[in-house]
Design a protein around this nucleic acid. Sequence first.
DNA 1: TCCTTATGTACAA
DNA 2: TGTACCTAAGGAC
Length: 280
Amino acid sequence: MPEGHTIHRLAHEYATRFTTGTPVQVTSPQGKFADSAALLDTHPLTVTEAHGKHLFLGFGPLGWVHIHLGLFGKVSFENAPARTAAGAAARTAPKADTVRLHLATPTAYADLRGPTTCTLITDAEKRAVHDRLGPDPLRADADPDRALRRIRASRTTIAALLMDQKVVAGVGNVYRAEVLFRHGIDPYTPGRDLTGAQWDAIWHDLVALMHEGVRLNRIDTVRPEHTPEAMGRPPRKDDHGGEVYVYRRATMPCHLCGSEIRTADHAARNLFWCPTCQKP
DNA sequence: TCCTTATGTACAA
DNA sequence: TGTACCTAAGGAC
């Protein structure tokens, strides 16, 4: 389940295994990508790229596979030959195959499941995707001033603006909640009231946090002085792994001030914040 | 075994 | 603002 760090890591993982000049076997066991898979089958993958939560697999003149994981999408990699369909069927329950995109070489394979987008697109269509995305803290070409101009022109809350991929690309619900906590910013602050210094701090923190996310393959936002070891509290027992300040900690005490962490439905997502540490 | 939930987005009204 | 879509894990029974 992905925020931008996941997608950048996937771009790197696909590249490591498949941009080797070796022809790649491309199939769609689940069927929804079958026609395009047939077109790409046995061609080499030449380059991969990520912008925000969008992933692009380049097949040279044949175009790009545009992937968006949505809320549930996942990719699994194996550094081993793929089992044959017959072998796989013998080993698994007679449940429908959910693999939308299967890439395979003699030494590795990758299975994509549950994406909201997996389509073959042209260079022009890819450009259009980039054009509607804001700066990505994980890309070297990102211009944070572009984001600030949109933020300062908006009455929408900074919480909602951070999730708007036209404003900033790659930030999701966890980084949004955590970066606002780390800078003591009330999530309901209107964009136009955010100071340049606040945005500067948010942006540079996102760059650092998200690079760390790519490296660890995990969202970890707690400063060294606030870790469970440093503060003598039990580590987080949770499926997401990383240590966080507020994300999914509703009703639990704030690590810094002890106040109950609050949650609210905000623009169709769950927002989490500390009412004491994040004052207007 | 069923139900809920989820790190997301697009589209309709 | 509500709804549709895609999958799998975890918890309640």
